[in-house]
Write a protein that binds this DNA or RNA. Sequence first.
DNA 1: GCACTCGACAACGGTATCGTAATCTAGTTA
DNA 2: TAACTAGATTACGATACCGTTGTCGAGTGC
Lengths: 109, 109
Amino acid sequence: MAKTKLTPDVLALVAQRFRALAEPARLQILQSMRRHEMTVTDLVGQTGLGQANVSKHLQLLHAQGFVTRRKDGLFTYYALADQSVFALCDIMCSQLDSNARARRRVLAS
Amino acid sequence: MAKTKLTPDVLALVAQRFRALAEPARLQILQSMRRHEMTVTDLVGQTGLGQANVSKHLQLLHAQGFVTRRKDGLFTYYALADQSVFALCDIMCSQLDSNARARRRVLAS
DNA sequence: GCACTCGACAACGGTATCGTAATCTAGTTA
DNA sequence: TAACTAGATTACGATACCGTTGTCGAGTGC
């Protein structure tokens, strides 16, 4: 395990990466790419977001290294850089679960 | 593994949780609490942030269930709700690592 | 009671970010 | 070459969020 020191600089970078995932639209895009790579128009169709919007979100995700780009003719294919995004989401979801359960427990008292 | 369905609603909640961690100040606060619970003034001293600022960040972290609150006389003690925050940060850091390495590889070509 | 401290809260200015509309570039096809 | 398409880019208005200042309530000690 690469135990990077958590200096303020590193903290800023980590925060930046968290922010990239702090947007429902981007999570939706990432989820749409879970199985295969996709073009921008594919993603526009699947998510219902605007073209410029999707493109901008993809720029950001690519800049942060969450997705890879591959150009072929007119199309640009985007794919997940790695699967760890879903590991992150899983942790978040299980926290959501336990929070909801705790909240219910409080209400029951 | 609690495989929650990733409906748009859930996605919004997950995004909200990511946003809570998308701020260097909050990561700094969480890191300061890694070992023991702390009062607000402790955290102000340790982080160098303003009092009102710290208090507001703590409200948010508490609302999202990342920290617990315990009042004792004049003081309010905050503590980590669980350690999974650091699991999240670890994943992010290792991604940072591999990104940096990939970038270096590109530069070397 | 009075002064003091801790922490929460409201208001405010500055900045960042979202989504959209319009434009531009590059590649394809007729 | 002209028309078309995919996608990137820019400009803009709306909104959200950060950090600070000032204030208030609660608890403590003289």
